[in-house]
Design a protein around this nucleic acid. Structure first.
Length: 214
DNA sequence: CACCAGGCAAGTA
DNA sequence: TACTTGCATGGT
């Protein structure tokens, strides 16, 4: 019995890059904040913004909500789109405050089937941001799909170009056991591959280690 | 100088 | 439904 293409890709990536220790962040709250700040943005810039929040001692739900939007914007400036992301952060913080008493641990207790729609209902939180929070901050078994994932699957002709976010997510979740650790590592490895080889959207980028996978 | 990075929502047709 | 555009910094 042959291994599925996904399991073979995972094996190749893991052998090549090893454990990624994701998500970089010290707490579920920091991870949730990072998920918003990293939207279409290099992680290096995001880590600067997070460092600013830590240095100002406002990387806590209640303090961040209390901080004026202008102050928040100033601190997260390096992450880009800083006015927009200030609003998005505050939209998330408002829900965390109003419904969970500013306690991420209480939000974590909500079942996946209820929490995902709730996160998606927040303006500024789309499918990738919601799923990143669900998987990496709240330990829910959802597969995170990003631009790298789409590129890699499409170049290996495992999905059509037109596949939607939901299509790609379903492709992974039907082909793999719903395991938080596996989903965590798999997505992190995909990003690692993308960062190292898929820069500049080069169609002949380093998919070489996976060439025989199609 | 140009192009890119771990998206999303709002506007248009 | 299927495009298009605005949002913004810092690295290459």
């Amino acid at each position: 019995m042959k291994k599925s293409p996904l399991k073979r890709i995972y094996a190749v990536l893991f052998k090549r890059f090893g454990q990624q220790h994701w998500w970089p962040g010290d707490s579920p709250f920091e991870i949730a904040v990072g998920a918003i700040l990293t939207q279409n943005t290099n992680w290096q810039n995001v880590s600067r913004a997070i460092a600013n929040l830590k240095k100002a001692r406002v990387l806590q739900p209640e303090r961040l909500l209390r901080l004026s939007p202008a102050r928040t914007a100033g601190l997260i400036r390096p992450s880009g789109y800083f006015r927009l992301k200030t609003k998005r952060l505050r939209n998330f913080l408002s829900v965390l405050s109003a419904r969970y008493g500013n306690d991420p641990a209480r939000m974590k207790k909500v079942p996946l089937a209820a929490l995902r729609p709730e996160l998606l209902s927040i303006n500024g939180i789309g499918p990738e941001t919601a799923d990143s929070m669900l998987l990496y901050a709240f330990d829910k078994p959802v597969f995170v799909v990003d631009a790298y994932t789409r590129r890699i699957l499409s170049r290996h002709r495992l999905i059509p170009e037109s596949a939607s976010y939901a299509d790609i997510q379903a492709f992974f979740m039907k082909g793999l056991c719903p395991n938080v650790r596996l989903f965590n590592e798999f997505h992190a490895l995909i990003v690692r591959l993308g960062k190292e080889y898929c820069l500049k959207n080069n169609p002949r980028c380093g998919l070489c280690p996976l060439k025989n996978e199609k």
